[in-house]
């Protein structure tokens, strides 16, 4: 059945009506109708076919053009809004600086205020709300290089997922650094605050919900020698070093005289209490 249907479709490409009409004409013996009428009709039909094709072409072209226009408009919108957002961020930074300088001025005027200011400074330091500079340890973690024996012609260097730095590795390094006495830690210039999370999203490592990319440079501020000796003797780091060796991960450290760590994102204000209340 299926084959015969296909055969019919393939064999009968010409409308059988033509053959029938030709037979009928032959039986009648020559065309009875005036020939110009038929020609006019055919020309008219062909004109209709032309209009149809042209209009459809126009329509299709319009549709794709419209899509491009919408896309361009959206891109423009995004650019404009991100400019606005950048501007607001700068404004916010300026205002924050103004607020804190005014606050410092006012507080510095009295002894109680001075105490409060010292408290605040300590709190800000431990909350990673201020940028810090100092000597420390720079630990570098990087994905394994794509295998050298990969097919040079195809060029498709397939990465071994085990050769990638995972969020767990970074967490381990950071925790070991904290345990070794680091005063402040940042990953690729992203300062870690008390509530900062290091996690995976797809293939990217997120620090404080912002993606950081390979290679990962973990900077820790503290006394370089103490940091290095405590960091390297911790058993977790030993295990990580063994794993890195096994899967060709890069795992280096160096003692630095001066590291600059930016401020972390100021955490949202979650709890406020009127003075005198307890």
């Amino acid at each position: 059945m299926g084959a015969s249907l296909l055969d019919a479709v393939l064999a009968e490409t010409l409308d059988p009506a033509y053959a029938q009409a030709a037979e009928a004409k032959a039986a009648r013996g020559g065309p009875a109708r005036p020939r110009w009428r038929g020609r006019l009709l055919v020309a008219l039909t062909m004109a209709i076919a032309g209009v149809l094709a042209a209009v459809t072409y126009d329509q299709a072209a319009d549709t794709s053009q419209g899509r491009q226009e919408v896309r361009a408009a959206l891109v423009r919108d995004i650019q404009r809004e991100s400019e606005v957002s950048d501007e607001l961020t700068t404004q916010l930074a300026e205002l924050r600086a103004e607020v804190s300088s005014t606050r410092d001025e006012v507080l510095a005027a009295s002894a109680v205020g001075q105490d409060a200011l010292d408290d605040l400074e300590r709190a800000e330091e431990s909350a990673a709300a201020v940028p810090v500079t100092g000597p420390g340890l720079l630990v570098t973690l990087a994905n394994a290089d794509p295998t050298a024996d990969a097919d040079p012609v195809g060029g498709a260097t397939e990465e071994d997922p085990r050769g990638r730095v995972a969020d767990g590795d970074l967490q381990l390094v950071v925790n070991s650094l904290w345990a070794a006495g680091a005063e402040a830690v940042s990953i690729n210039g992203q300062r870690l605050g008390p509530t900062t999370a290091i996690r995976f999203a797809g293939e990217a490592v997120l620090v404080d919900f912002r993606p950081v990319t390979n290679p990962y440079e973990v900077s820790a501020i503290g006394d370089p020698d103490t940091l290095a000796s405590r960091f390297l003797t911790s058993p977790e780091v030993g295990a990580l070093a063994a794993i890195s060796e096994l899967y060709d991960l890069r795992f280096d450290y160096s003692e630095e005289d001066e590291l600059r760590l930016p401020a972390a994102n100021t955490p949202e204000l979650r709890l406020a209490r009127p003075e005198g209340d307890s």
């Binding site: 010409l14 055919v42 039909t45 076919a49 149809l52």
Partner: peptide, 26 residues
Amino acid sequence: ALDAVFGGFRARLDGIFDAKVFVISF
């Protein structure tokens, strides 16, 4: 429409073209 036009052209080459059949088939 393209199918009808090609059919008509072929019928013409076959020598059995008929205006009425062409228009109706189109």
